[in-house]
Lab assay of single mutants.
Amino acid sequence: KELVLALYDYQEKSPREVTMKKGDILTLLNSTNKDWWKVEVADRQGFVPAAYVKKL
């Protein structure tokens, strides 16, 4: 499975999103959308801005 690194803190703004902290390592589930990537963090799945994460 592919992992991404959170480059910035992100606070979810809708139930479809997830909160992450800078430095978090997240499991990447889907990166087909260039703006929003689906990730899993702490047993929750949701979207984060693609610009806020980097593939490892």
Rank of each mutant, 00 (worst) to 15 (best):
E17G: 12
M20Y: 02
V53I: 08
V39E: 00
D24V: 06
D9I: 03
K13S: 10
A50G: 05
G46D: 00
M20K: 00
K54H: 11
Y10Q: 00
R44L: 06
K38C: 14
E2W: 13
M20F: 10
T19L: 03
E17C: 07
K22G: 05
A51Q: 12
N30P: 03
A42G: 15
E17I: 04
L7K: 05
L28A: 02
A42M: 14
L7D: 01
T27Q: 11
N30H: 08
K1V: 14
D24Q: 14
L26M: 13
Y52S: 10
W37H: 03
A42V: 11
Q11V: 14
K21G: 05
T32F: 10
L26Y: 11
L28H: 00
D35H: 15
K1F: 14
D9S: 09
K13R: 14
D35E: 13
F47T: 03
N33Q: 10
Q45V: 14
L3E: 07
N30A: 09
S14N: 12
V4G: 11
K22C: 08
G23V: 02
K55F: 09
A51I: 11
G46P: 01
I25E: 03
A6V: 11
L28P: 01
L56S: 04
T27Y: 12
R16D: 13
P15T: 10
K55D: 04
I25R: 05
V18Y: 04
W36K: 02
E40Y: 07
L28C: 08
Q45M: 12
S31R: 08
P15I: 10
E2P: 11
S14V: 05
A50N: 03
M20A: 02
P49C: 05
E2Q: 14
R44A: 06
D24T: 08
E17N: 05
R16E: 13
E2H: 12
S14G: 13
L29G: 01
V4C: 13
Q45G: 07
E40S: 10
K1M: 12
P49T: 02
L3S: 08
E2D: 12
E40N: 06
D24Y: 06
G23R: 03
V39R: 00
R16W: 15
G23M: 04
W36L: 04
N33I: 06
K38V: 14
D35W: 15
K34W: 08
F47G: 02
K34V: 12
E12C: 12
L56N: 03
K21Y: 12
W37M: 04
K34Q: 12
A51Y: 09
G46N: 01
R44Q: 07
N33Y: 09
V48I: 09
Q45N: 10
K22Y: 05
L3Q: 10
K13I: 07
D9V: 03
L7S: 03
M20W: 01
L26P: 01
V53A: 04
I25A: 03
N33R: 10
E2S: 12
V48H: 01
P49N: 03
I25V: 11
L26K: 01
E12L: 08
I25H: 05
D43N: 14
G46M: 06
D35N: 14
V48W: 02
K38F: 15
V48S: 01
D35G: 09
D24W: 13
W37Y: 07
L5I: 15
L29D: 02
L5K: 08
E2M: 12
L29R: 04
L7Y: 04
E2K: 10
K1C: 14
K21S: 09
